[in-house]
Design a protein around this nucleic acid. Structure first.
Lengths: 197, 197
DNA sequence: ACCTGAACACCGTTCAAGT
DNA sequence: ACCTGAACACCGTTCAAGT
């Protein structure tokens, strides 16, 4: 049972395992070290601190699924990207919270934003508006999935008042938000480009 | 210098003071107790735990400013409510994060959601759509202000790459999102009610 | 009713020293 | 280069006991 040398990758992957087995609150440096048969201080050779590790996880979670290519038009692509991102987030417990806080800390360019932004490259919006549109979508998306994941955990834990809150209802809520946003963007696009007045 | 008996209200108000003087990370039960010249365990007579205290703060922050009445139409009211909520949040440091996590924990009906929802009472949407619309707006709003507050703190702390990020640019981003959302809702409202096809 | 004292069971992080 | 040992400076929470 000799331990092979640890790589940065080993650490991140073990962290992801703990994350969706036990959830974010139980993803402590000490727990992670124990999982890797190593003393906690060893982790600080591979990552300068916990925040950096979490940012790395956020990247891995978001990058896992690749962009949807088939959709047509900037609106179709933006919509497809939003759904793919939601799927990617739903694959790991508490992922939305991790991505949100990494976004807030602003460590590097956020890949989730970059992908939504890219879908808008073929749109009639100027760079500033495209950025804002991507940000608006991202905020809605993270807020929605964050809440969805918390509800799932609460429900599985038993105690919840009233309705069971089905998966379909969550997807319906999500579709509603995405559709509203895209309809609003289409409206602005047609107001901006053909009639500068 | 005799200490008068502590009330629940005293605790909450001291917490709010610490919050916008030092920020959420420094709002610990031990620091709060010290501020009130009391031992940490004393706080647990007034609040069962820290989460409940934070939920109480979230309520106070959101309820501080009262709803805008003057706007006309459900869209005008929704827009006004969104701007008032943003103002209320900007009045306290890290408030968006507190409101978000209280929302996630789902302690009681969220007052922020209730106010956005109320603005939609006069809209043509059915109850489910109105709920979804309010939720969508809330997610965007909290995500936006959360990021805005983090950026403000980062900038004031010095180290930041590139642009200074002005207050106006944040307000522009916010207006953009709100306008897109409302345009999308108007679009759906006119598609739903007059032409069922 | 309201609070203290003292403990329990934890955290993230640093850093000299080992191999 | 990679890790241990040991410490530092903290957390939230509980609960018997005091007043």
């Amino acid at each position: 049972m000799q331990n092979a040398r640890l790589t940065r990758d080993d650490v991140a992957r073990a962290a992801l395992r703990i994350l969706d087995e036990l959830g974010l609150p139980d993803l402590t440096m000490r727990r992670l070290a124990a999982e890797l048969n190593v003393r906690p201080s060893a982790l600080y050779w591979h990552f300068p601190n916990k925040q950096t590790l979490l940012a790395d996880l956020a990247d891995r979670i978001v990058t896992r699924r690749h962009p949807a290519e088939s959709a047509s038009g900037w609106d179709g692509r933006l919509r497809a990207e939003a759904f793919v991102l939601r799927d990617a987030l739903l694959a790991y417990r508490d992922s939305a919270e991790i991505v949100s806080s990494s976004l807030a800390l602003g460590l590097g360019e956020n890949p989730a934003h970059a992908r939504l932004r890219q879908a808008l490259d073929s749109s009639p919006f100027d760079a500033e508006s495209a950025d804002r549109a991507a940000t608006t979508m991202l905020h809605f998306l993270l807020g929605h999935v964050s809440l969805e994941q918390q509800r799932l955990q609460y429900d599985s834990l038993g105690a919840r008042s009233g309705e069971p809150v089905t998966l379909e209802s969550h997807e319906g809520d999500f579709r509603f938000g995405v559709d509203i946003l895209i309809a609003g963007l289409r409206d602005r696009a047609s107001a901006d480009s053909p009639a500068p007045s």
